[in-house]
Design a protein around this nucleic acid. Structure first.
Lengths: 219, 219
DNA sequence: TCATCATTCAATAAATCAATAGAATGATAG
DNA sequence: CTATCATTCTATTGATTTATTGAATGATGA
């Protein structure tokens, strides 16, 4: 008879695969779109060899799969549920760990310094999109935007915000989003646009959460 | 500026807290009801010292909290979401890991040997309960039943099944449940009742998942 | 106060994990 | 076939994690 512990050990091995900051960074990156090992190594600041090893561990845990394309290996999440899993992990961590709240608080302290940025929740965003009263702004790099984005979103990568302002309507309220709740890009975009006189708020989630929730996407 | 890695490291520490079979066993036990260290040590087969250490780690990860009652320390899950988190972890593991499927298959191989046991999903159970056409059977130990159970459920701990048969209606279909999807108690109960000629099926989840879903419970 | 019981803390050895550098593999272009 | 490039594998080192032991703490009742 298989002991229950074997089963729980297997389960634990999946949890352990998520139990490292670098691997979570890789998962977060992969939540945007699939990528090659060297792209992943670059965006996470790891050496290629090290990134490869961490990816092997994620693969052993069944969280990512790989495909070869010519010389390169492309990795992607096996399943949208991996995003949901990390999101839930975040929620549990946030509500239960004072440490976590302290870090999040510090990460976004700049916002509070000027009175706090207003955010838009998922339900409110859905109805605002339906009414056509807002313009949706995606500030992620163009590669990630092209791999998938929210319907009707306009893409202005953060580093081109000033140059591309003309494509933004001045008369509508703008809602900006990026990679997820802890991604700082949309925060910065909202700050700059606010200073320029736009009416602008931040979507409190990001593209991966939107996609994992099964909501419509465009590409 | 706080680096993003600090944040992900904190997140990783929560995942690591779940990254051990013994700790998952403790969490699974705590999903039933709060318990003292020595109860937990006994039901998981750990020494008291070892159990205490693992509980410290779960506490550091923010997954459990402790309260003192006289000489004893009682631990419980901080949040229903911990159950949801483990459930999701299970789902991801099951769909993505061949190893996991192999183990689950072997654990319940006896059922298949006699044609497979039919199960009842959550939605079907809810409507069956509303129509009053079934009797709900909780085969967990009485302590756990008293701490909370599904509405209208009858408690017959597995080891008293034969003696207490009289409290079960013969004319209704019976749905049995226990601690969760990998708990073998309801499987065994269904097998025995089936042999005795009852119409009986197994609820495919358990009490913790029911409670975590915010469905009504009794105690 | 002292003795007792439940739990936690501290110290150790064995096992596992993380980062690094260098060798090995697999696919492609010439 | 050979050279090249992207990736993986191997071996090593140092850092964590685990289980075990025994001592220390905290609450209780005589």
């Amino acid at each position: 008879m298989t002991s229950k512990l074997d089963l729980l050990d297997t389960l634990a091995s999946v949890a352990r695969a998520l139990g490292n900051g670098h691997r979570l960074a890789l998962v977060e990156r992969l939540a945007q779109t699939e990528a090659s090992v060297d792209t992943l190594a670059e965006t996470t600041g790891l050496t290629v060899g090290n990134a490869s090893q961490h990816l092997q561990q994620l693969r052993k845990g069944g969280l990512v799969t790989a495909r070869r394309d010519g010389k390169q290996m492309f990795y992607r999440l096996t399943d949208e549920r991996v995003v949901t899993l990390v999101t839930l992990l975040r929620q549990v961590a946030e509500t239960n760990l004072a440490e976590m709240e302290r870090l999040v608080g510090r990460l976004f302290a700049d916002d509070d310094a000027q009175g706090g940025l207003e955010t838009v929740g998922r339900d409110e965003l859905l109805s605002a999109m339906a009414s056509g009263k807002i313009a949706l702004l995606d500030v992620r790099p163009n590669v990630e935007f092209k791999a998938g984005h929210l319907p009707e979103a306009i893409n202005i990568p953060l580093d081109q915000l000033e140059e591309m302002l003309t494509v933004l309507p001045k008369d509508k309220e703008i809602v900006a989003y990026c990679r997820g709740p802890y991604c700082v890009m949309s925060h910065q975009a909202v700050q700059r646009l606010h200073q320029l006189g736009y009416r602008v708020r931040r979507f409190e989630e990001g593209y991966p959460e939107w996609k994992a929730a099964g909501l419509p996407i465009a590409s």
